[in-house]
Design a protein around this nucleic acid. Structure first.
Lengths: 358, 358
DNA sequence: CGGCCGTATGCAATCGAATGCATCGTACTG
DNA sequence: CAGTACGATGCATTCGATTGCATACGGCCG
C-alpha cells in the first residue's frame, strides 16, 4: 500500500522517435519495423528489438499523424435518418462489428429526413476526411448522392437504394418479403388485402408496392387500385392516417400488408379508435421484424429482415471499395423471413357477403 | 446544357496555402484571418480578402492537420453496452444533437457488458485521440474507470455512476422515480409489492433498490425481504427468471415494480406461461419509458426517464470539462415522470383474505 | 531628425508518422 | 581482386495547419 513515488509528470505519450531511441535505431527504421507491410525491409533481429521497445513503452501510433501523411482517416461516415427508429440500431451494430476489427470507426449522423440537414451533415463528414459513406437515407431521386458519386465519394447504400446510380447497395429482398406476406394471407383465405405502402419516394416503398401487385396477381387475389394506399412517412402516424383514409373511403378488405412495422403499429391505433378487432375483423402483417413485436396486442406477424447482417454486409462492401476503388459496384439482396404471430388469422366468413354487395 | 469544359483533374482539395496565394498573402496570415480568435491580429481589409478567397475556393480546413498541431481531435468517445438496447439510442441522439453544433463528433463503441471488450474498445478510442469519454457502462466497482480517471481522461458518466470516483455524471433520479411507482401502486391499494431489482453491481440497480425500501417504508407497506429479488441483467430473460424465482418460492404479492422496462417485459412472458392475468392478478410498473410500451398487452405503466435530455446534458458537461479541465465535477439528476397505462389496477379484493391467511 | 512603439505580416519550426532516396557495408561474382 | 548488387539503415521531406519570433513600415514624441 505504499505510495508510488514516480514523479508526477504529464504522461508524455511515447512517439515513434522514443521507440527508435530506445531500440537504438532511427525513427524511419522503427516505422518500417512496426509496419507489417514494410517489415521485410529491416533486419529481422532489429525488427524484433524495435517491437520489444515499442511494447515496453506501450507505444501506440498516433492515428492523426498517420492520417495526415497517408490521407486515410480510418473513419467512415454513417448517414441515417434517426437513430431512435428501431430499424437502425441493429444496422449500426452490424456495421460497427465489421468496422472495428478492421481498424475503422464510424461517425454517425442523423438527418431527420431533412434534405438540408442531410447536406450539412454529409459535408461535415466529408470535411472530417471519412474514407467512405454508408448511406441509409437514399431516396429514389437523390441529387445529393448523385453529386457525391460524381465527386468520387466511395459509398454503399444500405436498406434503400436510389435510381440511376451505379453504386453498391445492400437491401432486403422486398419483393420476396412481400410475397411471403401475401402468400401467408392468401393461404389463410384472404382475397382483398390492403397495402399501406411506404413513401414511393423511397426504393423500399416502391419495391414493396411493386412486389405487392405481383403477388396479388400471382395468387389471383382481388386487384383493386383502392387497395393500395401510400403513406407519407414510415411512421405510426402516417400508417394510421393511411388506414383511416382507406376506411373512410369505404374500401373493403380483410387484411393489411403494412409497408413496415411502424405503419402496422399505426393500424393498431386506428383499430382501438374504431373498435376493430385484430385479427378477428382484420389481419395485419408488418415488415422489418423490429424488437418487442411479440409483446404487442396482438403480437404482430411480420416479415423479418436481418438488419444486423445488412449492416455487416454493407460495411464489408465499403471496406472492399476503399481497398480497391476500381472494383465495380455490387448489389446484394438479403432474404427476409416470415414471422407468424397473432395478428393474422382466417377472415370472418361474413366478409364474403360484403364482397357481393360492393 | 453544354458540357463543363474544365479539365478533369482530381479535385485537389484547396489547402490553406492555396487560399493564401489567391488572397496574395502568406499562409500564416490566412490562418490568422480565418480563425476568429486570431483575426484581430490581421488588418480587417486583409482578413476580408482572405475570407473571400476561402469562400471562392470552397476552402475547408483539414481537421486532421489541425488536430495534429493542436492535439485536439474534435471527437469524443461514447461507451455504451449495446446500441440495440432501446434505452441508448435516445441518449446517443441527445449527445449528438449537442456535440454536432459544437463541432464535435462522437465515436460509439459497444461493450456488450464484457469488461475485457470494454477495455479494448476504450483503448481504441483513446488511441484515436478522443478528447473525452461519455460512459454509460459504469458499474459500482469499476477499476477501468478508476484507471482512466487517474490517467487524467476527461469523462462524464451517463445513466449510471460508479462509487468513490469524483467524476461528473448525469443520472435519472431513481429514488424519485421509484417513489412515483410505489406511491401509484399504494394509492391503488397494493400492500405487498415485489421489486425485481436490476443488477446491484450497477448504481441504478442499487439506487432503485434503496429507493424502493424507502418508499415501501414511508407508505407503510409490507416490508418483507422476500419482496426484493435482484436480477442478474437488465434483460427480459433475467426479469422472467427473477419473477419465476419469486413465484416458485411462494412469495405473495399483488404488484411488481420492475428495475426497468425490459425486466417488466420479462414478467409478461411469465404471465403468459403461468396464466396470470395482468393487471387483474398482478400489476406491473416498468422503468425508463422505452418506445412502444403503449402498444403492449397490456400497455405497460412505467416511470419515464428523459433519455434524450440525459444525453444532451452529459454532452454539455463533457464539452465544459474539455474547455475548462479544472472545473470541479458536477452531478445532475433529471426528474422522471410516471406514465400510467393498463398494466396497473386495483388489486383483487380476494387478496385481502390471503394477507390474513399468511 | 532619430529612436521607439505598435501594427501587420512573413518566416520557419512544429505536431508524428511515412517514404523516396542516399549511403554504407558486405558478400558474391567474374 | 575489382566491381557490382543487394540488404540494411539513416536522412530529409512531406502531409496541412498553427504559432512564436522576427521583421518591416509608418507614425509619433522628445
Amino acid at each position: 500500500m505504499q505510495l508510488d513515488s514516480s514523479t508526477i509528470e504529464p504522461v508524455h505519450t511515447p512517439t515513434l522517435k522514443d521507440v527508435a531511441q530506445a531500440a537504438g535505431v532511427h525513427a524511419a527504421t522503427a516505422s518500417r519495423a512496426l509496419n507489417p507491410a514494410t517489415r521485410k525491409l529491416v533486419n529481422a533481429e532489429t525488427a524484433r528489438r524495435v517491437q520489444k521497445a515499442a511494447e515496453a513503452l506501450h507505444y501506440a501510433p498516433n492515428p492523426i499523424a498517420r492520417s495526415l501523411k497517408t490521407s486515410k482517416s480510418g473513419t467512415v461516415g454513417l448517414v441515417i435518418p434517426d437513430l431512435t427508429n428501431p430499424l437502425f440500431p441493429p444496422i449500426v451494430r452490424g456495421i460497427e462489428d465489421v468496422l472495428g476489427p478492421a481498424g475503422y470507426s464510424a461517425l454517425i449522423v442523423n438527418t431527420d429526413n431533412d434534405a438540408a440537414r442531410e447536406r450539412a451533415q454529409v459535408a461535415s463528414l466529408l470535411s472530417r476526411q471519412v474514407e467512405g459513406l454508408i448511406v441509409a437515407t437514399a431516396v429514389v431521386e437523390d441529387p445529393l448522392l448523385q453529386e457525391l458519386h460524381r465527386g468520387g465519394t466511395t459509398m454503399v447504400l444500405v436498406n434503400r437504394r436510389t435510381d440511376d446510380l451505379d453504386v453498391s447497395s445492400v437491401l432486403p429482398d422486398d419483393a420476396t418479403g412481400i410475397e411471403l406476406a401475401v402468400r401467408h394471407l392468401s393461404e389463410l383465405g384472404h382475397r382483398r388485402i390492403l397495402h399501406l405502402a411506404g413513401p414511393l419516394t423511397t426504393s423500399t416503398g416502391t419495391a414493396r408496392s411493386v412486389g405487392f401487385h405481383a403477388s396479388v396477381h400471382s395468387h389471383g387475389l382481388d386487384d383493386d387500385p383502392a387497395l393500395v394506399v401510400p403513406c407519407d412517412h414510415w411512421t405510426e402516424d402516417a400508417g394510421a392516417a393511411g388506414l383511416r383514409r382507406a376506411l373512410d373511403a369505404g374500401t373493403k378488405f380483410t387484411a393489411i400488408v403494412a409497408g413496415n412495422d411502424l405503419i402496422g403499429l399505426g393500424c393498431y391505433d386506428v383499430f382501438a379508435e374504431r373498435g376493430i378487432d385484430c385479427p378477428r375483423d382484420v389481419s395485419v402483417v408488418g415488415f422489418n421484424g423490429m424488437p418487442f413485436l411479440d409483446k404487442l396486442r396482438p403480437p404482430l406477424t411480420t416479415v423479418a429482415v436481418p438488419h444486423q447482417r445488412l449492416g455487416a454486409e454493407a460495411a464489408r462492401m465499403l471496406l472492399e471499395a476503399i481497398a480497391e476503388p476500381d472494383r465495380p459496384p455490387r448489389s446484394v439482396l438479403l432474404p427476409p423471413s416470415l414471422c407468424v404471430r397473432g395478428s393474422t388469422a382466417r377472415p370472418r366468413p361474413i366478409r364474403t357477403r360484403k364482397r357481393a354487395a360492393s
